[in-house]
Amino acid sequence: MLLDVLQGAEAGTFIIFLDSVNFSGRSLLKGYINAALKREDVVHVLELEVSEEELRAGLDTQCARRMYFHGGFADPLGWIKRSSFTVPQFTSEDILTLLTPVQQSKSAVLVIDSLSWLLRHLDPVVICKRLQEIKRGGAVKTIIGLLHSDMHQTSLVGSVCHLATTVISLGPRTQGQWALAKTTKRTKSGKVLQEEELFSIQEDLTVHSRVSHTVHTQAEPDSVEADPMANLTFNLRLSEMEREAKEKVALPFVFSQEKKSALLHPGQGAGQIMYEPDANDDFDQEDPDEDLDV
């Protein structure tokens, strides 16, 4: 699945490389950039954490004409006015302004290095909202962000990752040059696919992988209600014979035609109850408690 993500066939995707101090995800990020350049995508990089020279190192130089850096490394917060892009400029309008001069017939790939820089200096709610706006705007084919999980609270990391269509969690090296990648991908049908792979990155930034473990789950599985009659010591269900016998029993509040006729048309000699109130039964409507002597 990792190599499928690097191919970048689907449009409108948001990919997060989730790394930590145990393993840096920048090499895999550069591997994705290199793959995007080779398939002739236009790549825009918001450099906030490392310099342009470091990000260009190892990339295919023949494809460099389709790669555009928007420098924020020298002055990411805009204090000395030396950067072409700063953290406060992370808005859908400013991103569109950066893409417009070099916009071609197809959408571009936007690389954010890194999302942690934005989360450290902007309201996370604002960042999530702007990421959604950029994703839905149509000018960007794919958004790729590097996020350092150990720099933020778990709840914050989870909120940002919830917006992504694919999250690649990177672990430390396990076998020589092989490192662990756990890919979680949400498909358009609502399914969530998970796969653990071992991967290695070559000097030319090509990525090799082999599957370690695959899991297929539903994004929102239907909740299964517990059967309240599952573990009872007595039986509440009826057999077919018992059900038939029950249906033949006449209910006490259901009158048959004969009983209805007898009640509506009483015959001769039918008894009647006559009641004549005496003096002690005198009832005063204005004093219903008269007989209580109070």
Rank of each mutant, 00 (worst) to 15 (best):
T233M: 06
L232Y: 01
G176C: 03
L18E: 03
E242W: 03
G269Y: 01
D287G: 00
D75R: 03
H208D: 12
H265N: 15
K188L: 10
V5P: 00
E290I: 14
E40Y: 09
T100M: 09
E276K: 15
T183R: 00
Y68K: 04
G138M: 00
F253M: 11
L29S: 01
L147M: 06
N280A: 13
L232G: 00
V249Y: 05
P76I: 02
E290K: 15
L163F: 01
S116A: 03
V42K: 09
F14R: 11
E240L: 06
I143G: 00
M274E: 13
I15Q: 02
T184Q: 11
Q268E: 13
D204R: 08
A11R: 10
Q268Y: 08
L238Y: 09
G267Y: 02
P76Q: 01
E196N: 10
T100A: 12
E40N: 12
H70C: 02
V45R: 08
V45H: 06
H70K: 08
Q7C: 10
A279Q: 13
L28N: 06
S114F: 04
A230D: 11
E220D: 11
A219M: 10
D123Q: 08
F199S: 00
E240H: 07
A164R: 06
A164V: 05
N280T: 13
Q132G: 11
E49G: 07
T100P: 05
L115A: 00
P221V: 05
G78D: 07
D19F: 05
G8P: 02
N34D: 08
L251E: 14
I143A: 00
S200P: 02
H121L: 04
V215N: 14
R210S: 09
S239P: 01
F283I: 09
L238S: 09
Q285Y: 14
T165F: 02
C128V: 03
V43G: 00
A226C: 11
E40D: 11
F253Y: 14
G71Q: 10
Y275P: 09
F283E: 04
R120L: 11
D222A: 14
K259C: 05
A250L: 15
N22S: 13
Q7S: 13
C161Q: 04
V192F: 06
P221L: 06
R210N: 08
D284N: 11
W178A: 06
E49Q: 12
I112K: 03
F85H: 00
L193P: 03
Q218F: 13
E47G: 12
V109N: 01
L232Q: 02
P88T: 06
F255V: 10
V102C: 10
E242G: 05
I134E: 02
N280K: 15
P277R: 11
A230P: 07
T233N: 09
E276D: 10
